Amino acid sequence: MIPQVGQIVKVLRGRDPGEYAVVIRIEDHRFVWLADGDHRKFDQPKKKNLNHLHLQETISSEVASSIRETGRVTNGKLRFAIAKFVELMQVEAQEKGE
């Protein structure tokens, strides 16, 4: 799967495994820049190897359009996109369990 700006990813390796973040920039075919709006702000993103990430199918249209239009995104939008994704995952897990 090819990463896209605004895509939610799960970190598999590094200092914060299991955390979710959003792709805010694509470096090349191996690296992307991530931010979560909380621990890792937009102004200080983390460069991560794609091999250390699990790309989710969800792409935040709000984040993608904001970056496309202005070149930036607020940390609040990043937090909101991740929270919405986590909430959706919990709902799906509950439905499967019932």
Rank of each mutant, 00 (worst) to 15 (best):
L55V: 05
F80L: 11
D36Y: 00
V91Q: 04
N75S: 10
R40L: 05
D16C: 09
S60N: 01
L88C: 14
K84H: 13
Q4A: 12
E98T: 15
P17Q: 08
F31Q: 11
A83V: 06
E62S: 15
S60F: 00
G71R: 13
Q56F: 10
K47P: 04
F80C: 15
S60A: 05
Q90Y: 09
E69G: 02
G97D: 14
R40G: 01
K84Y: 07
N49D: 14
K41M: 09
A35W: 01
E19H: 15
A93G: 07
L53H: 00
Q4M: 07
A21C: 07
D16M: 13
S61A: 11
E57I: 08
V32P: 03
G6H: 00
A21R: 07
L12Y: 07
Y20I: 00
I24R: 07
E87G: 15
G6K: 00
L34M: 05
I59R: 13
F80D: 06
E27G: 10
G37Q: 03
G14L: 12
K47D: 03
S66K: 06
W33R: 15
A35S: 11
G6P: 03
F80H: 10
D36W: 02
H52A: 07
V5T: 08
N75E: 08
F42L: 09
H52G: 15
